[in-house]
Design a protein around this nucleic acid. Structure first.
Lengths: 81, 81
DNA sequence: GTACATTTGTTCGTATGTATA
DNA sequence: GTATACATACGAACAAATGTA
């Protein structure tokens, strides 16, 4: 179980954060059509900069796990979509 | 006396604005329990974006000079508090 | 009771500059 | 030279609460 972010490792912080969030999604902690923690929250919770949080969410979009609605937030994708 | 905001200096705009407002408080221009200029007003008066105005007010809160009441405004703290 | 304006709260989008690895 | 990371700064949109007409 990954649950914290390491600074001096081979894996970029934003990838580590994306992996953590993917775990939280697949574990059912973050539910379909429910919002991901906001960028601000991720910054506070994991001690990263906003750009890093944004890139992590971008990775999740690329992995087709979440979708972002401008000005509304980023949400977990339902399984059938 | 600081009274205008410079763009390309070493001091961030939001800190410059916080310094200006602190001066206006200590000079007695902005009185205890009276409202600070609203974010909208600060944007117009100093030519900054809303985020910059908000961050300046945040700095003043950190300096314990003002307190904010949601949906009401931000007010100068009385000396004895 | 309703409509409107004001103000703060929140979120996302984008860009630039700097520093480091 | 590129990728990573952070700080700053602008813009935009919507929500919620308050106060007033």
């Amino acid at each position: 179980m990954i649950d914290s972010i390491e600074a001096d490792g081979p894996v970029p912080k934003y990838v580590q954060l994306a992996d953590i969030l993917e775990q939280r999604i697949t574990a059912g902690e973050l539910l379909p059509n429910k919002p991901l923690p906001s960028e601000k929250f991720l910054m506070a919770e994991y001690g990263v900069a906003r750009g890093t949080a944004r890139r992590a969410v971008e990775v999740l979009r690329d992995r087709d796990l979440v979708f972002t609605v401008p000005q509304r937030g980023t949400f977990v994708k339902p399984k059938d979509s």
